[in-house]
Design a protein around this nucleic acid. Structure first.
Length: 204
DNA sequence: CACTCGATGTTCT
DNA sequence: GAACATCGAGTGG
C-alpha cells in the first residue's frame, strides 16, 4: 500500500464501538469535532460535528423512548453506535447515534455539521448555495448527506455512514437547553452542546 | 430582523 | 384529534 492510500485508510478509519460507551452527555460532547462521513452512489459527503443533543432513558420526557418501545424507536434499544433515523413532521429526517447497552434507550441527536467534503453534492441535494445553509440543522444535514430510512438500524462503525476522528484540537463548548421541545418535555435540561466559535450551528 | 404558517407521517391521548 | 427533537416561504417592521 502506498503512502497516499495509507493516509486515506487512516483518515477514514471509523471510531470503534467502544467510543460510544459511557454517559450519554459525555459522548454527546466527545462527538463534537468528529467527522460524519456518508458514502452513496452519488459520491462522498462529510462534515465536522459542531452541535449535538443528548436524550436520556430516565427522567427525560423528551426522549422518543420515554414511554417505552415502539416500532419507530426500536433502534434506540440496540447496541452503542446503532443508527436511529426517524421522520419528523412528515417530511424531514433526523439522525441519532445510540449510546447505551441494549435495552437502555439513550442516543445523541446530530444537530449541525460544518461541511468538509462533497459540498457541490450537498448543494445539489439541498437546493441552496450558501455553505452555512447546507448542514445547520438536524434535517438539513440529513438532506445534505443523503441520510434517510435506508440508514436506520445501521451502525456507524460499518459504512456507508461512519464517524471518524480527525484529531482536531479541542474547542470551547457551550452547554445549554435543547431545541424544539415543548414545556414539560425536558426543555429545561441542559443537554445541548455546540462549539462556541462555530458559524455552522442551528441556533445560538 | 421577528413572527406566522403550511407541509405531512407516525405516535399518542 | 393533537402533537411532534423541522424547514422554508411569506408577511410586517
Amino acid at each position: 500500500m502506498d503512502a497516499r492510500l495509507q493516509d486515506m485508510a487512516t483518515a477514514f478509519m471509523p471510531l470503534p464501538e467502544s467510543f460510544f460507551v459511557g454517559s450519554t452527555p459525555r459522548i454527546a460532547k466527545r462527538l463534537l469535532g468528529k467527522l460524519l462521513v456518508s458514502d452513496s452512489p452519488e459520491g462522498r459527503t462529510a462534515g465536522r460535528i459542531v452541535e449535538t443533543e443528548a436524550y436520556l432513558a430516565t427522567g427525560d420526557p423528551g426522549c422518543h423512548a420515554a414511554r417505552g418501545k415502539t416500532a419507530r424507536n426500536a433502534p434506540m434499544f440496540e447496541r452503542p453506535g446503532t443508527i436511529y433515523v426517524y421522520k419528523i413532521y412528515g417530511i424531514h429526517y433526523c439522525i441519532n447515534i445510540v449510546t447505551q447497552p441494549p435495552g437502555i434507550p439513550e442516543a445523541v441527536l446530530i444537530r449541525a455539521l460544518e461541511p468538509v467534503e462533497g459540498l457541490q453534492l450537498m448543494r445539489r441535494r439541498r437546493g441552496v448555495d450558501s455553505t452555512k445553509e447546507l448542514c445547520s440543522g438536524p434535517a438539513k444535514l440529513c438532506q445534505a448527506l443523503g441520510i434517510g430510512p435506508q440508514h436506520n438500524w445501521g451502525h456507524v462503525t460499518r459504512g456507508p455512514l461512519m464517524v471518524v476522528d480527525c484529531n482536531d484540537p479541542p474547542r470551547p463548548i457551550v452547554t445549554t437547553t435543547r431545541i424544539g421541545l415543548g414545556p414539560n418535555r425536558g426543555d429545561n435540561l441542559k443537554l445541548r452542546y455546540y462549539f462556541a466559535d462555530s458559524d455552522h450551528v442551528s441556533k445560538r
